[in-house]
Nucleic acid binder design. Structure first.
Lengths: 339, 339
DNA sequence: GTGAAAGCGCTAACAG
DNA sequence: CTGTTAGCGCTTTCAC
């Protein structure tokens, strides 16, 4: 390591005690402006960087924030990571990552073990792990703050960043309705996930508010996978009175629907409009490109990291109040007005 | 944090000095078997976990390993992360992640700054950052070991894990040749990447060893993107004497070629065989599913982490010798024998 | 507003 | 083979 500069060097050169240097490092408000400036100057001259191990040992902190996840979409995770990382760099934290297995019965213990072994200062939980209340509770019980990324209001605002998926799904459905579609098939996600519920409710909200009948035959359960999309698409499209539009609640399934349609000799969007959710990278690449809903994932992660670090540092960040972000409708080639 | 147990508690209860406890913690060979057992027992009874900050401060280590990356394929990175993480957990390290921008002129400084600020013990570099020699050199110059993931021999074996992409591309080309194809188009990656070179050489190797003429018109440069695949595909397929097979040097481009073929009214694989490289998640999902080459990415990452930790810990791991892993041919529906 | 001094929990000379 | 004794670099009472 090229840096061997310690707080003592800074103190000596600045002509103050190391206690004072420590004060400016920790932004204590009781330092004279003149001392602060002097110390700051020496710090940057020397390129001094406080040793995180030493700070951690003395203050029992680690400047490490943890990311525990088991999300099947690496694109989503990549955005989350970039979002968190940018604020970590800015605030002097590091991002420690922990891929997990949400089906592991010992997950709670493993998470606790992780944070206590590494002395993690705080944790960010993306879905679907964010939906496991036991983890959030156990973390708090151990004095480790956490912030959750979610699809709906599942915790207090200061530990939560949500993208309102219900309103996203409603937007999409209304767009389809306004394009003249009235028989709109819907493929939901698997049971037990918040997003499954929220997106489905958004679809139903739109139907209801436009006085459209909810036909149970148009509502099929999927599994957020390509295959389940193909299957559900076939089913929907081989019904006697088939829908003119299908809203699949994620892009993987929507792509499956496009394939199912092709099998049956239907052209998208001429014969069938198909919409997805997530704005998966493929959504823009497949032919036809997919109309979908985009969540501001990176922004969500940034916000989450800001909230978490504010909590750890004991500041009360302004960002801690608002926690709801709105997804955005992305129009592409897979949907069209009814002819 | 629930653990407040320190090395002193362990020492007291085991009836030895803390120096001895420290010895068993660090697997010193000079401890009497009886003491070791006693200490181990107390440790597990108490659920004692050494404080990493304290260890780090005393030994000037952090038990942190860094992952600096800028790979555009999140699926690849997910495998890398899972691979590294599993050995970190086993060996008592944590994985600190640093998404970067390979086009940033200050990248070298940023990396050095990262490792020195966080006292990172060692770094793993996946492609394409692994190909930037300046980073590896500067890291070593700062006393931070690093292990690189690469497509070819670019460093000494103990800091390198490679998947032999040249032999992978050769395998694929030979498979195509053995299926009766003799006009095989090739779409390379962008200039300046090792993988571009290696894969292309593999293609040429196969052609040469089967005494096939290398037609420069069949060799087109792409950019590892979907769009570049579409473009190169159109070009190759609209030539007067068009190829019967196209080997795109990654899956994104191969999918582009499939689309280009469809535009031109060609059926894959009846009229044209298409092969890719990487076994991207989509490769199995698109129709027709894609014949491709799969690198053992997670295994590579595991190996890299083992080598790195062996270096940090000063052990001389057996894994440090072999560093070449072979990619695997994955046959699917996009290729067929020539009719 | 500032400083002296006592640790935080662990490792590592250096005896014994 | 084991214990004593200093620190590692920083934060934090508690006086001044």
């Amino acid at each position: 390591m090229r840096e061997k500069v310690t707080i003592n060097d800074v103190a000596r050169l600045a002509g103050v005690s190391k206690r004072t240097v420590s004060r400016v490092l920790n932004e204590s408000p009781v330092v004279a402006e003149s001392s602060r400036e002097k110390v700051q100057r020496i710090i940057s001259e020397l390129g001094y960087q406080p040793n995180p191990q030493a700070r951690g040992l003395a203050a029992s902190r680690s400047y490490l924030i943890g990311l525990v996840y088991d999300n099947p979409d690496p694109f989503f995770m990549e955005s989350v990571i970039r979002g968190i990382s940018s604020v970590c760099i800015e605030k002097g934290y590091e991002l420690v990552i922990r891929p997990s297995d949400r089906t592991d019965p010992n997950l709670v213990d493993q998470v606790i073990n992780f944070v206590s072994r590494a002395q993690i200062d705080g944790v960010i939980l993306p879905p679907p792990i964010s939906e496991m209340d036991a983890i959030a509770e156990e973390l708090e019980a151990n004095g480790v703050p956490c912030v959750r990324l979610a699809a709906a209001q599942i915790d207090e605002p200061h530990r939560l960043v949500i993208s309102d998926e219900r309103s996203g799904a409603k937007q999409m459905t209304e767009y389809l309705i306004n394009s003249g579609h009235s028989r709109i098939g819907y493929i939901s996600g698997p049971k037990g996930l918040k997003s499954t519920w929220e997106r489905r409710e958004g679809y139903l909200d739109a139907l209801r508010s436009h006085d459209l009948e909810v036909d149970p035959d148009l509502l099929i359960r999927g599994a957020y996978t390509f295959e389940s999309g193909v299957k559900a698409g076939r089913e929907l499209l081989s019904a006697p009175q088939r829908p003119t539009a299908i809203f699949a609640s994620n892009d993987q399934m929507a792509i499956g629907v496009v394939n199912a349609a092709r099998e049956l000799g239907l052209t998208v969007p001429a014969d069938l409009s198909v919409a997805g959710f997530d704005d998966h990278e493929l959504a823009a690449q497949i032919i036809p490109s997919l109309t979908t809903i985009r969540r501001p994932v990176q922004l969500m992660a940034t916000l989450a990291a800001q909230k978490l670090i504010a909590t750890i540092d004991g500041h009360h960040d302004a960002a801690s109040d608002d926690c709801v972000l709105n997804p955005e409708l992305v129009l592409r080639d897979s949907t069209a007005p009814i002819s």
